[in-house]
């Protein structure tokens, strides 16, 4: 990271980059955006194909409870990674497990789980309120580029690397499992395994995104670039690539623009506003083109 920061400083000195890139947190945030964007966009296409948008939203909200739980159990308030990881993973797997064993419609079930996670999170936050300040809560909810450390980047890089390594050889099977589980089973694919694998990937990327995008908005970044790309592309390959590109651009603009314009906007909110503006533009384009 020091090398990248050094290059950024050279860029600032040469006048190629703006002054804000001389701050190390800014370089960290841009690196995080570049790591996270393609993955969120790529996974988002599967979230849309599998109709799991509400699920990814629920996992994001569960992050709040995970953080409160971590702090309560003695983890540092700035980085309660064990509480966050454990609670989100148990929440997601349990939700998926119950889904496969009940006739309750999936959106209803996710709604129940989401409300419960938020309620428990709110209750626990009262207990941990003395250990944290209110700004930390704001950072968790809406993301903050100021808080990204080298350690966070390392975790992010490892998480993204692992997810990518798993996703590339399983992408087709995960997609077939959602489009026609019966064909997938006859072909000998372990459909349950691929379902749970995808749930775990969504949960991991959500946890990794909490610092930059925020718990409340991470689900939106899994959804909006994919929804935009769906309007503009004609096949699955370009759908995934376009979604990854849009998510990366949104992350970069949402990270850099508030700093350049000196706007007091959380990074997560800025990223989602940029992403949504792409979606609205694409929607208008489709409406105009179709008449």
């Amino acid at each position: 990271m020091d090398t990248i920061r050094h290059w950024a400083q050279l860029g600032v000195d040469a006048g190629w980059l703006s002054e804000s890139f001389s701050y190390s947190f800014m370089v960290n945030a841009v690196v995080a955006a570049i790591l996270l964007g393609p993955l969120l966009g790529g996974l988002g296409t599967l979230v849309i194909a599998k109709r799991l948008a509400f699920f990814s939203e629920a996992v994001g909200h569960a992050a709040l409870t995970g953080i409160a739980l971590g702090v309560l159990l003695g983890e540092p308030a700035e980085n309660p990674i064990i509480g966050l990881f454990s609670f989100c993973m148990i929440f997601a797997l349990l939700l998926h497990f119950v889904r496969n064993r009940t006739n309750v419609p999936y959106d209803t079930l996710v709604g129940v789980f989401l409300a419960f996670a938020l309620a428990v999170g709110a209750a626990l936050l009262m207990y941990v309120a003395r250990k944290i300040n209110i700004h930390m809560l704001e950072n968790v909810l809406f993301g903050s580029i100021l808080t990204i450390t080298d350690y966070d980047l390392l975790i992010l890089a490892v998480t993204c690397g692992v997810i990518l390594l798993v996703l590339i050889p399983t992408f087709n099977r995960i997609l077939l499992t959602c489009i026609s589980p019966d064909i997938a089973k006859v072909r000998g694919y372990a459909t349950n395994f691929y379902d749970y694998l995808f749930v775990m990937m969504i949960t991991l990327v959500t946890i990794a995104s909490v610092k930059i995008v925020g718990a409340v908005l991470v689900g939106a970044l899994l959804l909006i670039p994919g929804a935009t790309a769906r309007l503009l592309t004609k096949n699955m390959g370009s759908f995934v690539l376009m979604s990854a590109l849009l998510a990366t651009i949104s992350c970069l603009i949402g990270t850099i623009l508030p700093m350049e314009l000196k706007l007091p906007i959380p990074s997560g909110a800025a990223i989602i506003i940029v992403s949504t503006s792409f979606f609205l533009t694409a929607t208008c384009y489709r409406i105009v083109r179709k008449g």
Binding site: F171, N172, G237, F239, V240
Partner: peptide, 10 residues
């Protein structure tokens, strides 16, 4: 999708 592990975006 049914034929290959090579992801569709590859």
């Amino acid at each position: 999708l049914n034929q290959s592990r090579n992801p569709l975006f590859w």
